[in-house]
Amino acid sequence: MNDTNSTVTRRGLRNLTRGEAAQTNLMLAVVCVVVLVAMAMLRPSMFLSSYNFESMAFFMPELGILSIAMMIAMLTGGIDLSIVGVANLAGITAGTLFATMAGDGGTGALGLGPVTLGVVAALLVGMAAGLLNGFLISVLKITPILATLGTGQVFIGLCLVLTGGPAIVGFPSGWNAIGNGKLLGIPVPLIIFALICIALSVLLARTSFGLRLKLIGTNPKAAVYAGIKRGEMIFYSYMLTGGLAAMAGILLSARTNAAKSDYGASYLLQAVLIAVLGGTNPAGGRGNVLGVALALISLTLLSSGFQMMRVSNHLIDFIWGGVLIAVIALNSWRSWKRT
Protein backbone atom coordinates (compact mmCIF):
# COMPACT_ATOMS: atom_id res chain seq x y z
CA MET A 1 0.00 0.00 0.00
CA ASN A 2 2.73 2.33 1.00
CA ASP A 3 4.80 1.32 -2.01
CA THR A 4 2.12 1.96 -4.57
CA ASN A 5 1.38 5.27 -2.98
CA SER A 6 4.97 6.44 -3.26
CA THR A 7 5.32 5.35 -6.90
CA VAL A 8 2.16 7.21 -7.72
CA THR A 9 3.50 10.28 -5.98
CA ARG A 10 6.79 9.94 -7.77
CA ARG A 11 5.15 9.59 -11.13
CA GLY A 12 2.92 12.51 -10.30
CA LEU A 13 5.91 14.60 -9.34
CA ARG A 14 7.72 13.69 -12.53
CA ASN A 15 4.73 14.80 -14.56
CA LEU A 16 4.54 17.97 -12.58
CA THR A 17 8.17 18.87 -13.08
CA ARG A 18 8.08 18.31 -16.81
CA GLY A 19 7.97 21.40 -19.01
CA GLU A 20 8.68 24.99 -18.22
CA ALA A 21 5.25 25.95 -16.92
CA ALA A 22 5.38 23.01 -14.57
CA GLN A 23 8.77 24.11 -13.28
CA THR A 24 7.46 27.60 -12.58
CA ASN A 25 4.46 26.12 -10.80
CA LEU A 26 6.62 23.84 -8.70
CA MET A 27 8.80 26.77 -7.73
CA LEU A 28 5.72 28.78 -6.78
CA ALA A 29 4.38 25.91 -4.69
CA VAL A 30 7.72 25.80 -2.87
CA VAL A 31 7.53 29.58 -2.31
CA CYS A 32 4.02 29.16 -0.87
CA VAL A 33 5.25 26.57 1.59
CA VAL A 34 8.34 28.56 2.55
CA VAL A 35 6.31 31.74 3.17
CA LEU A 36 3.74 29.75 5.12
CA VAL A 37 6.38 28.13 7.34
CA ALA A 38 8.35 31.35 7.83
CA MET A 39 5.26 33.34 8.82
CA ALA A 40 3.99 30.54 11.02
CA MET A 41 7.30 30.56 12.87
CA LEU A 42 7.50 34.34 13.21
CA ARG A 43 3.89 34.99 14.26
CA PRO A 44 2.35 31.62 15.05
CA SER A 45 -0.65 32.74 17.08
CA MET A 46 -1.86 35.36 14.61
CA PHE A 47 -0.84 33.88 11.30
CA LEU A 48 -2.09 30.36 11.90
CA SER A 49 -5.45 31.48 13.26
CA SER A 50 -8.49 30.32 11.34
CA TYR A 51 -9.63 33.95 11.25
CA ASN A 52 -6.60 34.91 9.22
CA PHE A 53 -7.12 32.18 6.63
CA GLU A 54 -10.80 32.91 6.45
CA SER A 55 -10.26 36.61 5.81
CA MET A 56 -7.72 35.74 3.12
CA ALA A 57 -10.28 33.42 1.53
CA PHE A 58 -12.71 36.32 1.32
CA PHE A 59 -10.50 39.00 -0.19
CA MET A 60 -8.15 36.88 -2.31
CA PRO A 61 -10.69 35.86 -5.01
CA GLU A 62 -11.21 39.44 -6.30
CA LEU A 63 -7.53 39.89 -6.99
CA GLY A 64 -7.29 36.33 -8.29
CA ILE A 65 -10.03 36.84 -10.85
CA LEU A 66 -8.49 40.14 -11.97
CA SER A 67 -5.12 38.39 -12.35
CA ILE A 68 -6.66 35.68 -14.50
CA ALA A 69 -8.36 38.38 -16.56
CA MET A 70 -4.96 40.04 -17.04
CA MET A 71 -3.45 36.71 -18.04
CA ILE A 72 -6.12 36.18 -20.73
CA ALA A 73 -5.31 39.60 -22.21
CA MET A 74 -1.58 38.82 -22.09
CA LEU A 75 -2.01 35.48 -23.89
CA THR A 76 -2.55 37.26 -27.20
CA GLY A 77 0.36 39.59 -26.48
CA GLY A 78 -1.91 42.34 -25.18
CA ILE A 79 -2.59 43.85 -21.81
CA ASP A 80 -5.73 45.25 -20.21
CA LEU A 81 -5.18 48.32 -18.06
CA SER A 82 -8.91 48.98 -17.79
CA ILE A 83 -9.82 45.96 -15.62
CA VAL A 84 -10.12 47.91 -12.36
CA GLY A 85 -12.26 50.54 -14.09
CA VAL A 86 -14.46 47.78 -15.53
CA ALA A 87 -14.77 46.10 -12.12
CA ASN A 88 -15.89 49.32 -10.45
CA LEU A 89 -18.21 50.23 -13.31
CA ALA A 90 -19.86 46.80 -13.02
CA GLY A 91 -20.38 47.20 -9.27
CA ILE A 92 -21.67 50.74 -9.64
CA THR A 93 -24.03 49.79 -12.45
CA ALA A 94 -25.54 47.08 -10.28
CA GLY A 95 -25.73 49.48 -7.32
CA THR A 96 -27.48 52.14 -9.39
CA LEU A 97 -29.85 49.51 -10.78
CA PHE A 98 -30.75 48.33 -7.27
CA ALA A 99 -31.34 51.89 -6.08
CA THR A 100 -33.68 52.49 -9.04
CA MET A 101 -35.55 49.22 -8.57
CA ALA A 102 -35.96 49.64 -4.83
CA GLY A 103 -37.23 53.20 -5.06
CA ASP A 104 -38.06 54.44 -1.57
CA GLY A 105 -38.34 50.94 -0.10
CA GLY A 106 -34.62 50.53 0.51
CA THR A 107 -32.40 48.05 -1.31
CA GLY A 108 -32.29 45.61 1.59
CA ALA A 109 -35.74 44.26 0.73
CA LEU A 110 -34.84 43.28 -2.84
CA GLY A 111 -35.15 39.54 -3.41
CA LEU A 112 -33.43 36.97 -5.55
CA GLY A 113 -34.88 38.18 -8.84
CA PRO A 114 -33.45 41.72 -8.73
CA VAL A 115 -30.10 40.40 -7.45
CA THR A 116 -29.84 37.98 -10.37
CA LEU A 117 -30.73 40.83 -12.68
CA GLY A 118 -27.94 42.88 -11.06
CA VAL A 119 -25.40 40.11 -11.62
CA VAL A 120 -26.44 39.78 -15.25
CA ALA A 121 -26.29 43.55 -15.74
CA ALA A 122 -22.84 43.76 -14.16
CA LEU A 123 -21.49 40.93 -16.32
CA LEU A 124 -23.04 42.50 -19.42
CA VAL A 125 -21.35 45.81 -18.59
CA GLY A 126 -18.04 43.95 -18.31
CA MET A 127 -18.50 42.20 -21.62
CA ALA A 128 -19.59 45.42 -23.33
CA ALA A 129 -16.45 47.09 -21.99
CA GLY A 130 -14.42 44.17 -23.33
CA LEU A 131 -16.22 44.52 -26.66
CA LEU A 132 -15.16 48.18 -26.83
CA ASN A 133 -11.55 47.24 -26.02
CA GLY A 134 -11.65 44.45 -28.60
CA PHE A 135 -13.03 46.85 -31.21
CA LEU A 136 -10.30 49.44 -30.58
CA ILE A 137 -7.55 46.79 -30.60
CA SER A 138 -8.64 44.53 -33.39
CA VAL A 139 -10.55 46.80 -35.79
CA LEU A 140 -8.87 50.17 -35.26
CA LYS A 141 -5.51 48.47 -34.59
CA ILE A 142 -4.68 50.55 -31.53
CA THR A 143 -1.99 49.12 -29.25
CA PRO A 144 -3.62 47.40 -26.27
CA ILE A 145 -1.69 49.57 -23.78
CA LEU A 146 -3.05 52.85 -25.09
CA ALA A 147 -6.50 51.56 -25.98
CA THR A 148 -7.12 50.16 -22.50
CA LEU A 149 -5.44 53.10 -20.79
CA GLY A 150 -7.94 55.35 -22.56
CA THR A 151 -10.99 53.16 -22.03
CA GLY A 152 -9.97 52.67 -18.38
CA GLN A 153 -10.20 56.44 -17.95
CA VAL A 154 -13.57 56.51 -19.68
CA PHE A 155 -14.89 53.73 -17.43
CA ILE A 156 -13.65 55.46 -14.27
CA GLY A 157 -15.14 58.67 -15.64
CA LEU A 158 -18.49 56.93 -16.14
CA CYS A 159 -18.26 55.69 -12.54
CA LEU A 160 -17.78 59.29 -11.41
CA VAL A 161 -20.68 60.53 -13.51
CA LEU A 162 -22.98 57.76 -12.22
CA THR A 163 -22.07 58.25 -8.57
CA GLY A 164 -21.14 61.93 -8.60
CA GLY A 165 -18.04 61.03 -6.60
CA PRO A 166 -18.96 59.40 -3.28
CA ALA A 167 -19.41 55.67 -2.82
CA ILE A 168 -22.71 53.91 -3.44
CA VAL A 169 -23.57 52.09 -0.23
CA GLY A 170 -26.33 49.67 0.70
CA PHE A 171 -26.67 46.65 -1.55
CA PRO A 172 -29.40 44.01 -1.21
CA SER A 173 -28.64 41.28 1.32
CA GLY A 174 -28.70 38.66 -1.43
CA TRP A 175 -25.92 40.58 -3.20
CA ASN A 176 -23.86 40.78 -0.01
CA ALA A 177 -24.17 37.02 0.41
CA ILE A 178 -22.11 36.64 -2.78
CA GLY A 179 -19.21 38.40 -1.09
CA ASN A 180 -19.65 37.46 2.56
CA GLY A 181 -21.67 34.26 2.65
CA LYS A 182 -20.61 30.69 3.20
CA LEU A 183 -21.78 27.50 1.52
CA LEU A 184 -21.10 24.30 3.49
CA GLY A 185 -18.59 26.24 5.55
CA ILE A 186 -16.64 27.44 2.51
CA PRO A 187 -16.65 31.18 1.69
CA VAL A 188 -18.74 31.84 -1.42
CA PRO A 189 -16.06 34.03 -3.12
CA LEU A 190 -13.61 31.15 -2.82
CA ILE A 191 -16.09 28.76 -4.43
CA ILE A 192 -16.66 31.22 -7.30
CA PHE A 193 -12.92 31.64 -7.73
CA ALA A 194 -12.33 27.88 -7.77
CA LEU A 195 -15.09 27.39 -10.36
CA ILE A 196 -13.62 30.12 -12.56
CA CYS A 197 -10.16 28.58 -12.24
CA ILE A 198 -11.41 25.14 -13.27
CA ALA A 199 -13.51 26.47 -16.14
CA LEU A 200 -10.67 28.56 -17.54
CA SER A 201 -8.08 25.81 -17.10
CA VAL A 202 -10.23 23.56 -19.21
CA LEU A 203 -10.92 26.33 -21.70
CA LEU A 204 -7.24 27.19 -22.15
CA ALA A 205 -5.68 23.74 -21.97
CA ARG A 206 -8.31 21.45 -23.43
CA THR A 207 -10.19 23.36 -26.12
CA SER A 208 -9.19 24.57 -29.53
CA PHE A 209 -10.24 28.06 -28.43
CA GLY A 210 -7.46 28.13 -25.82
CA LEU A 211 -4.93 26.75 -28.25
CA ARG A 212 -5.84 29.36 -30.85
CA LEU A 213 -5.55 32.16 -28.29
CA LYS A 214 -2.05 31.06 -27.35
CA LEU A 215 -1.06 30.62 -31.00
CA ILE A 216 -1.95 34.23 -31.72
CA GLY A 217 0.41 35.29 -28.98
CA THR A 218 3.20 32.91 -29.96
CA ASN A 219 3.31 33.85 -33.60
CA PRO A 220 0.63 36.17 -34.97
CA LYS A 221 1.65 35.64 -38.59
CA ALA A 222 1.72 31.87 -38.38
CA ALA A 223 -1.66 31.97 -36.62
CA VAL A 224 -3.16 33.93 -39.52
CA TYR A 225 -1.68 31.52 -42.05
CA ALA A 226 -3.07 28.63 -40.01
CA GLY A 227 -6.52 30.05 -40.69
CA ILE A 228 -7.17 31.52 -37.24
CA LYS A 229 -9.40 34.56 -37.35
CA ARG A 230 -7.20 36.88 -35.33
CA GLY A 231 -9.61 39.78 -35.05
CA GLU A 232 -12.46 37.58 -33.89
CA MET A 233 -10.26 35.84 -31.29
CA ILE A 234 -9.09 39.18 -29.91
CA PHE A 235 -12.72 40.26 -29.54
CA TYR A 236 -13.47 37.09 -27.58
CA SER A 237 -10.38 37.40 -25.42
CA TYR A 238 -11.10 40.97 -24.34
CA MET A 239 -14.77 40.17 -23.76
CA LEU A 240 -13.69 37.31 -21.52
CA THR A 241 -11.28 39.64 -19.71
CA GLY A 242 -14.04 42.24 -19.30
CA GLY A 243 -16.51 39.64 -18.03
CA LEU A 244 -14.00 38.36 -15.48
CA ALA A 245 -13.18 41.90 -14.37
CA ALA A 246 -16.91 42.50 -13.86
CA MET A 247 -17.10 39.32 -11.76
CA ALA A 248 -14.29 40.69 -9.61
CA GLY A 249 -16.26 43.93 -9.32
CA ILE A 250 -19.33 41.98 -8.17
CA LEU A 251 -17.27 40.28 -5.45
CA LEU A 252 -15.64 43.55 -4.41
CA SER A 253 -18.91 45.45 -4.06
CA ALA A 254 -20.63 42.47 -2.45
CA ARG A 255 -17.90 42.04 0.14
CA THR A 256 -17.61 45.72 1.05
CA ASN A 257 -21.32 46.52 0.55
CA ALA A 258 -20.20 49.57 -1.42
CA ALA A 259 -19.02 50.61 -4.88
CA LYS A 260 -16.84 53.58 -5.74
CA SER A 261 -14.93 54.85 -8.75
CA ASP A 262 -11.48 54.41 -7.20
CA TYR A 263 -11.81 51.17 -5.25
CA GLY A 264 -9.05 48.65 -5.78
CA ALA A 265 -6.77 51.02 -7.69
CA SER A 266 -3.71 49.14 -6.41
CA TYR A 267 -5.11 45.89 -7.85
CA LEU A 268 -3.92 46.83 -11.34
CA LEU A 269 -0.23 46.54 -10.57
CA GLN A 270 -0.83 43.49 -8.40
CA ALA A 271 -2.78 41.75 -11.17
CA VAL A 272 0.06 42.38 -13.63
CA LEU A 273 2.56 41.14 -11.08
CA ILE A 274 0.62 37.97 -10.25
CA ALA A 275 0.06 37.16 -13.91
CA VAL A 276 3.76 37.61 -14.74
CA LEU A 277 4.86 35.81 -11.59
CA GLY A 278 2.54 32.93 -12.46
CA GLY A 279 4.49 32.23 -15.63
CA THR A 280 2.49 34.34 -18.07
CA ASN A 281 4.58 35.80 -20.86
CA PRO A 282 3.50 39.44 -21.37
CA ALA A 283 4.66 39.12 -24.98
CA GLY A 284 2.02 36.44 -25.47
CA GLY A 285 1.67 32.73 -25.99
CA ARG A 286 2.31 31.42 -22.51
CA GLY A 287 0.18 31.32 -19.38
CA ASN A 288 -1.73 28.89 -17.24
CA VAL A 289 -4.36 29.23 -14.56
CA LEU A 290 -2.63 27.03 -11.98
CA GLY A 291 0.49 29.22 -12.07
CA VAL A 292 -1.58 32.37 -11.56
CA ALA A 293 -3.46 30.77 -8.66
CA LEU A 294 -0.21 29.69 -6.99
CA ALA A 295 1.34 33.12 -7.48
CA LEU A 296 -1.79 34.66 -5.97
CA ILE A 297 -1.63 32.41 -2.92
CA SER A 298 2.07 32.99 -2.26
CA LEU A 299 1.76 36.77 -2.59
CA THR A 300 -1.38 36.91 -0.44
CA LEU A 301 0.37 34.90 2.27
CA LEU A 302 3.40 37.17 1.98
CA SER A 303 1.48 40.42 2.24
CA SER A 304 -0.73 39.16 5.07
CA GLY A 305 2.41 38.09 6.91
CA PHE A 306 3.99 41.53 6.45
CA GLN A 307 0.82 43.21 7.65
CA MET A 308 1.01 41.16 10.83
CA MET A 309 4.59 42.22 11.37
CA ARG A 310 3.26 45.78 11.22
CA VAL A 311 5.09 46.71 8.04
CA SER A 312 3.45 49.85 6.62
CA ASN A 313 1.21 49.50 3.57
CA HIS A 314 3.55 51.73 1.60
CA LEU A 315 6.44 49.41 2.20
CA ILE A 316 4.27 46.51 1.09
CA ASP A 317 3.74 48.43 -2.19
CA PHE A 318 7.50 48.70 -2.39
CA ILE A 319 7.83 44.96 -1.89
CA TRP A 320 5.22 44.20 -4.59
CA GLY A 321 7.14 46.37 -7.05
CA GLY A 322 10.44 44.87 -6.01
CA VAL A 323 9.13 41.33 -6.46
CA LEU A 324 7.85 42.23 -9.93
CA ILE A 325 11.29 43.45 -10.99
CA ALA A 326 13.00 40.46 -9.37
CA VAL A 327 10.71 38.10 -11.29
CA ILE A 328 11.47 39.90 -14.54
CA ALA A 329 15.18 39.52 -13.82
CA LEU A 330 14.79 35.86 -12.94
CA ASN A 331 12.75 35.07 -16.08
CA SER A 332 15.30 36.85 -18.22
CA TRP A 333 18.12 34.94 -16.56
CA ARG A 334 16.33 31.65 -17.13
CA SER A 335 15.70 32.28 -20.80
CA TRP A 336 19.32 33.39 -21.15
CA LYS A 337 20.46 30.13 -19.60
CA ARG A 338 18.29 28.14 -22.01
CA THR A 339 19.83 29.58 -25.14
Partner: peptide, 30 residues
Protein backbone atom coordinates in the same frame (compact mmCIF):
# COMPACT_ATOMS: atom_id res chain seq x y z
CA UNK B 1 16.42 46.95 -16.07
CA UNK B 2 14.81 47.53 -19.47
CA UNK B 3 18.05 47.13 -21.40
CA UNK B 4 19.61 44.34 -19.37
CA UNK B 5 16.52 42.15 -19.04
CA UNK B 6 14.95 43.07 -22.38
CA UNK B 7 11.65 43.54 -20.62
CA UNK B 8 8.57 45.48 -21.74
CA UNK B 9 9.06 49.09 -20.48
CA UNK B 10 5.43 49.34 -19.30
CA UNK B 11 5.81 46.48 -16.84
CA UNK B 12 9.26 47.58 -15.66
CA UNK B 13 8.12 51.14 -15.03
CA UNK B 14 4.94 49.94 -13.27
CA UNK B 15 7.29 48.07 -10.93
CA UNK B 16 9.80 50.87 -10.38
CA UNK B 17 6.98 53.37 -9.82
CA UNK B 18 5.55 51.19 -7.08
CA UNK B 19 9.01 50.69 -5.56
CA UNK B 20 9.85 54.40 -5.50
CA UNK B 21 6.46 55.57 -4.25
CA UNK B 22 6.43 52.86 -1.60
CA UNK B 23 9.89 53.81 -0.38
CA UNK B 24 9.22 57.55 -0.28
CA UNK B 25 5.90 57.19 1.54
CA UNK B 26 6.99 54.29 3.73
CA UNK B 27 10.41 55.47 4.82
CA UNK B 28 10.51 59.25 4.38
CA UNK B 29 7.00 60.21 5.40
CA UNK B 30 3.50 60.95 4.24
Amino acid sequence: IIHRFKMIPLIVTLGTASVVRGLVLGLVGT
